[in-house]
Simulated scan of single mutants.
Amino acid sequence: MNTTPHIHAMIVAAGRGSRFGSSIAKQYTMLQEQTLLQHSVARLACSTYITKCLLVIAADDTIARTLDFVLPIHYAIGGAERWQSVQAGVEAISNAGAADSDLVLIHDAARPAVPSHDIDNVIEAAMIEPYGAILATPVADTLKEAYLQSTIQNKPINSTHSYAKCTIDRRHMWQAQTPQVFRLDQLQQVLAHVTEYQLDITDEASAFEHLALPIRLVTGSRQNIKLTYPDDATLLAAILTAQT
């Protein structure tokens, strides 16, 4: 196996982030006078392994190409679902002449605070793995499984409320982050599997899990949070300020 493969960095920025509740796509939220997308590209540029970046954007995106980035940027047009956007990016990387054993690094545009040493750590872990590696953090909080209930002691209640059913053993629970790094040929195969069976996946590692292919977990920083809700912007701004 080639232990020194080329690294092809990709940022998925084709979604709108419906939970964020903004009129613009959340990757264009401004923090410290730059968009999240610019911050995320700048973080990848801190890695000694990354010299350029592919941005996967929506077909109607009118903002990305107007921004200045610290890395040379190439573009691909994404799809309706995240995995379709990743597939479009992987196809662009492959068509550009990448080798099967090269590594594809996939990062979320909405994770602008990933520490540079975490990026290098997950790349170096993926280099010695047959399939890949992802950043993740062990779950620290108590996890509850919830259920909905319409009556209590034969009295009606608000059925939209959730109730605690049981506590889940968190000893083997991890919270996935990005970057996630995979062998190009293996990533192509699992994405073809997702397409064939129309699987509902939320990250690329879960596609490998469907085929029982081992993906290494690399402990990442808890500062590497994702902008999902409006309140996250305040926390991210504080983290970015502390990191400078």
Rank of each mutant, 00 (worst) to 15 (best):
T4K: 04
P5E: 00
H8E: 05
A9T: 02
A9P: 03
M10K: 03
I11P: 04
A14F: 02
G15M: 05
F20R: 04
F20C: 04
G21W: 13
S23Y: 08
I24K: 12
A25P: 09
M30K: 13
E33K: 11
L37G: 06
H39K: 06
S40I: 09
R43I: 07
R43Q: 15
R43A: 14
L44Q: 10
A45G: 07
S47Q: 06
S47G: 08
T51V: 09
I57Y: 02
A58T: 00
D61W: 10
D61A: 04
T62V: 12
V70A: 11
P72R: 05
I77A: 04
A80H: 15
E81N: 14
E81K: 14
E81R: 14
R82G: 05
W83T: 00
Q87S: 14
Q87G: 02
A88E: 00
A88R: 06
A88F: 04
A88P: 05
A88K: 02
V90Y: 00
E91L: 07
N95G: 08
A96F: 07
A98H: 10
A99E: 08
A99T: 01
L103Y: 05
D108R: 07
R111T: 06
A113L: 02
V114T: 12
I128T: 13
I134M: 14
A136S: 12
T137M: 12
V139D: 01
A140R: 15
A140G: 15
T142I: 14
L143C: 03
L148E: 13
S150W: 12
Q153R: 14
P156S: 07
P156I: 07
S159V: 15
T160H: 15
S162A: 14
S162H: 11
C166I: 05
M173C: 15
W174Y: 13
Q177I: 06
P179G: 05
V181W: 01
D185C: 15
D185Y: 05
D185L: 07
Q186W: 00
L187K: 08
V190L: 04
A192I: 01
E196P: 04
Q198R: 14
D200T: 13
D200P: 02
I201D: 00
T202Y: 15
D203W: 09
A207N: 02
A207M: 01
A207H: 00
L211G: 06
A212F: 13
L213Y: 10
K226D: 11
K226C: 11
K226A: 12
L227N: 02
D231C: 10
T234P: 01
L236K: 00
A238P: 01
I239N: 03
L240Y: 01
